[in-house]
Amino acid sequence: MSRLAERFRQLRGRGRTALIPFITAGDPHPDLTVRLMHGLVAAGADVVELGVPFSDPIGDGPVIQQACERALRHNVSLRDVLTMVQRFREDDPDTPVVLMGYMNPVELMGYAEFATRARDSGVDGVLTVDMPPEEMGELAASLAAAALDSVFLVSPTTTEERMQAICAKAGGFIYYVSLKGVTGAANLDVDAVGARVARLHGMTGLPVGVGFGISDAATAARMAAVADAVVVGSALVRRIEANQEDLDAAQEAVTALVAEMRQAMDADAPASVE
């Protein structure tokens, strides 16, 4: 069983919604990333989503764009990101790591080489924001050959038909984009999200995570009630941005918010089922 599947199985048993923090690798400095990943886990993360910096992140809002720019100032490459995961794995063999990024660095490395290196580094899932399932054939085959899960986005504009097709190809979990917009936007409608998540649950046995625009503990808790996982990105990255000159302070500010979200999600959760 993949590390992601195993993790979600455990969580289900405990009646706990997964908390998946997102940070951009190398932001604000490559020295912080591995330490911060461990900090996220200690603060209550169940899965870590690690952004691969890209110069032209069209699916992201200004907060994550700037995180990419900060990381790229230190020339953080896809290879570097894989090395960071490898170092993280030395001390944490259990927490799944999902890479989130854009196609071009992967194109250049080559699909097969990327998949092998990612697996060897301890990556569990891969989400390429600008790679829809229709174009995914060869990459999907390479990822599958390396036993990596292909994580896909489903958005409010995704048709039923596409939802079916995506569910059929997805692994790990489905990432439902909770709003029409880029990361960091602020127009969430919890009821609408709940209805779409329920629809997805009717189509797949995979867990459904919800992300984009979840910026505080209260919202995380409300989303946790309707989804299997809550993904938080821009809210954490904003705290990194505010503390970019002081790595300790950045670590402290980010993990504090994760802990707060964890607490709010668990407080609202129904007592352990089963």
């Binding site: 600008d130 229709e134 174009e135 896909f152 986005l153 958005s155 048709t159």
Partner: peptide
Amino acid sequence: ERGHFGRYGGQFVPETLMAPLR
């Protein structure tokens, strides 16, 4: 049909844009 000129072209966009492109 899906916009390919040989190996070039295609639709490499975030999921939210797949519906408006359709």
